[in-house]
Amino acid sequence: MDNLFLYVIAFLIFPGFLFTSSFGLIVSWIDRKVSALIQWRVGPPFFQPFYDLLKLWHKELIIPATAKKNGFILAPLLGISSVTLLATILGIINLNPEYQFIGDIIVILYLMIIPPLSIVWGGFTSGNPFGALGASREIKLMMGYELPFILAIVTVFFKVGSISLGEIIQYQHVHGVMLNLPSMIVAFIVSILCLQAKLAQVPFDISEAECEIMEGPFIEYSGPLLAVYKLMQSMLQVVFPWFLISIFWGGTSFQGWGILWAVLKYIFIITLVILIKNTNPRIRIDQAVKFFWGWVTLVALIAMILMFMGY
């Protein structure tokens, strides 16, 4: 009973919903501020993402007559709950690798697919041609980046010989972080590129593309449901880099300077994402899929070959 209570706390407060969402909003402020500085603008004040969310929360919720009502409402809720669960599992295993279970990475990988799927679901149920177009683009993009991403992750599986996140973290505690190996650096680069697409940032924000299809799947969303989607996206900005840190970069230790070190690692990854975002135009969906199935998959295979050769 005590244990159950702790799990609920973990799900709702730390490292689950409250922590991830507030940290995510801070990160989205960093994203906006750094982008603004790159573009010679001033940028928003610190609390702007919170104000935005609060404003959306108080706005009217309009469900279009053409939408399938249940799916339209459930899709964002499904997305945000899966991200919360993802953050909880990641956080607990990072806090204490003993809490691992067999195949927890498989669970995590599946949970990572659910937020894009919820966007797809929301887009199709909105009954808007832009929404449907954006949703179909999201599916194509997902098919594109999942293959090299899984390949990059599988490289780590083979190196460690385990599909458990806890064991991967413990392995890195003993043998040093994965990024010491050249093959893992290559795999890490591949996963950074996939991360860019998973976070729906330029050049891979193809499904939202506000100048082409006007935010695509989100076009009909307004008020609280849009707030849920926005919150989900900023939580993803925390969770996905955190997953990469856990896999490739020794995880997060909460002892001594560990927490600062973890934050620095995180800022490094998110800065990379922001820089890529601000120095590239959006590419077309067919170019994106070709890019991921061609070059990126090739590089991921090279990483795997390097790993088997012992580098």
Binding site: S35, I38, Q39, W40, R41, V202, P203, D205, A209, C211, E212, N278, T279, N280, P281, R282
Partner: peptide, 16 residues
């Protein structure tokens, strides 16, 4: 044109 292809840095720089 930069903005339309999602290249907001070009957008802001040229307007600057």
């Amino acid at each position: 044109a930069g903005h339309f292809i999602g290249y907001n840095t070009v957008f802001m720089w040229t307007w600057k």
